[in-house]
Amino acid sequence: MRKFLPVEDLARDERFNQITMNDRMADQRTAITTDSRPSRAANRIVPSRADASDAARGLMHGIFVGEIQALEGAGRTCWDFTTGSEAPFELKLDMARQCWDEARHVEISCKLSDWMGSEIGEYAENTVLFQAACSNDPVLRLAGVNRALEGLAIDVFTTMKEFGEVAGDQYLEFAEDWMLADEVTHVKMGSDWLRKITENDPERRKKALDFQSVVDKLFSYGGTRSESQESPIGLARRFRELAGFDDQEIDVIADLSLAALEERKAAVLEAQAALN
């Protein structure tokens, strides 16, 4: 079996349409309003939003394809590296356990999408998640996938769990809560292995954390996730703490996300000024 599979070769049937971050950045339109009135500026996915059901369906589909790519990423880490010399057996065992969780999450997300009235492939699949899992250093993968990607999953699941809770959708609330518990474990695995493997290699640790920062910035693109109500997805501080992030790390992600939101708003204002 081939090692180090490029993102272009991921197996998908004709229902899926994959897009890259470049495709997304090429879209000059924006859902972010530059109106400063609180009622207009809130984009958080909550039931009181007028388009709540459709926004939740879109996010649910994003979760579904994210779970597929997380499964593929963890699976590749089990296979791409030589046991012992490149990756400890116990790390691979953790990745195998994660594959088991992600496969279950794919099924749960698929059923939740049915429940919410979405079809597989109704929305584009952004492949940025798997791209973060293509590094040739397992430590960078742990930083990019387990800490950045699964960290984002914690934020997303918390937002969806709260949506289900407020809307009275018990299926959504409970399913998201169970998946959230798994994600906290996955992030913890990444944090623990990152510290353990780079214990005596500060340069490698710095490189991994720098890579995580790059991935976090990608996932914050356009201000999709931040502590501001203007972002559709919130930053789940408490669950990130449980997953092994310290306060300083969470503050850095919060600042990064807010900066991405402000950057996007400035770009929107500029584009609107150019139009007028």
């Binding site: 059901s53 049915d114 009235g117 979405s118 809307a167």
Partner: peptide, 12 residues
Amino acid sequence: INRQRWLYNFRN
């Protein structure tokens, strides 16, 4: 029309 989509909206 995806009936389930609108049922979910109605339930919300």
